[in-house]
């Protein structure tokens, strides 16, 4: 398998021009293997110890519906999802052999993605609890790992607003998407857009090579990541989360079952929530970062 594509430039120097499309097939194959493997693993894994019934006392003061994602956050998520899917389709479907005019759609989707990400960053910093997502949680991770490796291991502690795997996924997607976006922005200099004059000589051949390889790597990584994301989104045991991204709220049962009320404090906000979902930008706060 080839990892890179390189060519002789006009001066007969070998330069990178991008990732090998073999990697695309590898990402597709890897995603399929992972999904199938995961599904089998879930099936064969011994049943979890039944969860302790919801502590009625704990439930006191907790509203029936707890806002998890504001309307704005949901709009962002679905915009980003759409642009990302368009980007993936326009990037890779022609390579699969189905040809169409993809370039313009691709860069326009890219611009929309950039806009939505910019908006998301501003929104997350200004209006959301930024740190509820940006916690690493090494101990938490180890506990999850042990639990995955052995069903006998104690269940990991419950998370705050964002479960550990969500946060990890977000971290990865941040890195990969930013790589794709930043390289993509430069790559727009090589095509016709209303923003700038084409100039393949903005960087030297080797710099361009790195940019193209990074873009390609993040692209094939996204194939895997998005596939995995969609897979989990449609898995039965995770659907309540998916619904929360559509409706905005989770119900009390799921809240109590999966979240640590101390880390994701919602009780005081009941009144506000009952005022109508989405009316309050983000109804919850997480526990202080240090507790993690």
């Amino acid at each position: 398998m080839e990892f890179w594509r390189s060519v002789a430039n006009p001066w007969d120097q070998n330069v990178l021009i991008g990732v090998s499309w073999d990697l695309m097939w590898a990402a597709v194959g890897g995603a399929v293997l992972f999904l199938v493997g995961h599904a089998i693993w879930i099936k064969t894994r011994p049943a979890e110890a039944p969860q302790a019934p919801v502590d009625r006392a704990a439930a006191a003061g907790i509203p029936e519906r707890i806002q998890r994602h504001s309307l704005a956050a949901r709009i962002f998520h679905w915009t980003m999802s759409a642009t990302m899917l368009v980007l993936l389709v326009t990037a890779f479907v022609p390579v699969f052999g189905f040809q169409f005019a993809w370039v313009q759609v691709h860069w326009i989707a890219g611009v929309l993605l950039i806009a939505s990400v910019l908006w998301h960053v501003v929104h997350a910093i200004g209006w959301q609890d930024f740190w509820s997502m940006f916690q690493l949680g090494i101990d938490e991770g180890m506990a999850h790992l042990k639990h995955v490796l052995s069903s006998k291991a104690p269940a990991p502690p419950k998370a705050g607003k964002y479960p550990f795997d969500h946060r990890m996924y977000h971290h990865v997607i941040v890195v990969v998407s930013l790589a794709a976006i930043i390289t993509g922005v430069f790559m727009m200099v090589r095509i016709d857009t209303p923003f700038m004059a084409r100039n393949p000589y903005l960087f030297g051949d080797s710099t361009w090579g790195v940019i193209y390889v990074l873009h390609g790597l993040s692209g094939v990584a996204l194939i895997f990541l998005i596939a995995a994301h969609i897979y989990f989104a449609i898995r039965p045991e995770k659907r309540w989360i998916t619904w929360s991204m559509i409706r905005g709220w989770v119900d009390r049962e799921h809240y109590l079952a999966h979240h640590d009320p101390e880390k994701w404090v919602v009780a005081e906000k009941v009144a506000a929530l009952q005022g109508g979902t989405g009316a309050v930008a983000d109804a919850t706060v997480s526990a202080p970062r240090g507790e993690d």
Partner: peptide, 17 residues
């Protein structure tokens, strides 16, 4: 024989400034 888009490369030399 330059490695332009048409040749499977990743650039167009003819549209450079």
């Amino acid at each position: 024989g330059w490695p332009c888009y048409r040749a499977g490369g990743n650039t167009c030399y003819a549209s450079a400034p």
